[in-house]
Simulated assay, not measured.
Amino acid sequence: MANNVRTAQAGTLESNDIMLTVAPGPAGSGIQLDLDSIVLAQYGPAIRQTILTVLAESDVTDVYIKAVDRGALDCTIRARTLAVLGRAGFLLKGELV
């Protein structure tokens, strides 16, 4: 699952983007997701679900994720989540060891 996992960041605070910061958590701590969004009332649950789905598909557990959304589309949220996981050192499905 993970190899030398470290804190990483992906995305920007520009309009229609999302900035994600991920940090490893202690074993057994689970996923802690802190979401801040300009469209939290309308799309908060959908944003949260997209991030959690990508984490589940990537077999990632025991992390802290801070997400600051500025109206990103679902495809952008997925891409940024994959990017931050890769930068943090998580081995994603399909990667060579």
Score class of each variant (00 low, 15 high):
R48W: 07
L52D: 09
V39T: 10
P45V: 14
L20F: 11
A8L: 11
F90L: 02
L35W: 02
V63S: 03
T50K: 02
D62Q: 06
L73T: 09
T12Q: 04
L82V: 11
L33T: 08
G30N: 08
M19H: 09
V63K: 00
E95S: 10
D17G: 04
L73I: 12
A88G: 03
D74P: 08
A41F: 00
V22W: 04
S29G: 06
L96A: 09
L55Y: 00
I31M: 04
L73H: 13
A27N: 09
R87Q: 15
S58P: 03
G11C: 12
A10V: 02
I77R: 03
L82M: 13
V22I: 15
T21F: 05
T53I: 00
A10T: 04
S37A: 15
S15V: 13
S58N: 11
D59F: 07
I31F: 00
V60I: 08
V84G: 04
A88E: 04
T50N: 06
D17Y: 00
A72G: 13
D36G: 14
D62T: 01
G28E: 11
T7I: 12
Q32L: 13
N3T: 15
P26L: 13
L96C: 01
L40W: 12
G86R: 14
E57G: 02
I65Q: 01
T21C: 11
A2R: 06
L96T: 07
L33H: 09
T12K: 03
L82I: 12
G94M: 14
A72F: 07
L55T: 00
G25Y: 15
A83G: 10
T50V: 12
C75Y: 05
L35T: 04
I51G: 06
V68L: 14
V54Y: 00
K66H: 15
G89Q: 02
L35Y: 03
I31W: 01
R70Y: 14
R6S: 07
G25A: 15
R70G: 15
L33D: 11
D59C: 06
E57N: 10
N3L: 14
Q9C: 03
V39G: 04
I47S: 04
T12E: 00
G11E: 04
A67F: 02
T61A: 11
